[in-house]
Simulated assay, not measured.
Amino acid sequence: MSNKYLDLLSYFGIGSAHPGGFGLTQFLLRKEKIQASESVLDIGCGTGKTSAFLSTKYGCSVTAVDNHPLMIKKARERLDLLEGTIHLIEGDIEHLNLEENSYDVIISESVLVFTNIGNTLSEIARMLKKDGRLLLIEMTGTSNLSEQVKEKVKELYGVQQLFSEEEWKDCLQKAGFQHIEMLEPPVNMEQIDIDDINPSSEIDMSLYDLWDEHNQFLNEYSDVVGYRIFRCRL
């Protein structure tokens, strides 16, 4: 199913479009201390910035997945420049033909909200090793978020639902994750990096309008719509 907001990210080729940007990614991975012997799955990899960093910085085995053909094209352009080997897959993260119990770390940066969350978490739990870790950065609403704002989020971003922190925890537990930590971002980590872009030669003007609407929404509703960072184990 087409999603205009994901089309926007793809055509502009924005790396690290998730809350906190690439600075938050680096912060989380420093804390995680990825080992070269570990295997990492980057779901919703976008243009491949996190996957490239994982491979270059830690020397680990990386599998990168995205379901948007243009994102895959731009990720391949980035990853082909690296010496390391990254397995790049165009596929639906709700139904991946990857072996179970095969990844030490699975990372998802503002991706699950664009899927059927229950289905995706079940697939993640299937692929994660029994002692593996899941790192999530996900859009989250406050518990008292109005239905009007929820509907605006669904319309603007093309998502099916907007969970509160407790709803995320409940969904994670139902998928089999028994150990759920909430991680606090460092101070002044709210801004998104927009200096890493690979724009397409032709971009529909409606996507520029959507980007303006996105920024206006963030400015207006930042007190009730934000994000949470989860570190989870089975």
Results as ranks from 00 to 15, higher is better:
Leu70Arg: 05
Met71Ile: 02
Met71Trp: 00
Met71Leu: 09
Lys73Leu: 12
Lys73Phe: 11
Lys74Tyr: 09
Lys74Arg: 14
Ala75Ile: 03
Ala75Glu: 05
Ala75Val: 04
Ala75Cys: 11
Arg76Asn: 14
Arg76Tyr: 10
Arg76Pro: 01
Arg76Leu: 13
Glu77Tyr: 11
Glu77Gln: 15
Arg78Gln: 12
Arg78Asp: 04
Leu79Gly: 03
Leu79Phe: 11
Asp80His: 11
Asp80Leu: 13
Leu81Met: 13
Leu81Gln: 15
Leu81Thr: 15
Leu82Ile: 09
Leu82Asn: 07
Glu83Asp: 15
Glu83Gln: 14
Glu83Val: 11
Thr85Glu: 15
Thr85Asn: 14
Ile86His: 02
Ile86Asn: 02
His87Asp: 14
His87Arg: 12
Ile89Asp: 00
Glu90Cys: 10
Glu90Asp: 07
Gly91Ile: 00
Gly91Pro: 01
Gly91Arg: 00
Gly91Thr: 01
Gly91Met: 02
Asp92His: 03
Asp92Met: 04
Ile93Lys: 00
Ile93Val: 10
Ile93Glu: 00
Ile93Gly: 00
Glu94Cys: 08
Glu94His: 06
Glu94Gly: 14
Leu96Gly: 07
Leu96Ile: 08
Asn97Trp: 09
Asn97Ile: 11
Glu99Pro: 09
Glu99Ile: 07
Glu99Arg: 09
Glu100Lys: 11
Glu100Leu: 02
Asn101Ile: 04
Asn101His: 13
Ser102Leu: 08
Ser102Thr: 11
Ser102Cys: 11
Ser102Ala: 14
Tyr103Pro: 04
Tyr103Ser: 05
Asp104Glu: 13
Asp104Lys: 05
Asp104Leu: 08
Asp104Cys: 09
Val105Gln: 05
Ile106Gly: 02
Ile107Ser: 08
Ile107Met: 11
Ser108Gln: 03
Ser108Phe: 02
Ser108Lys: 04
Glu109His: 06
Glu109Met: 09
Glu109Ser: 05
Glu109Lys: 02
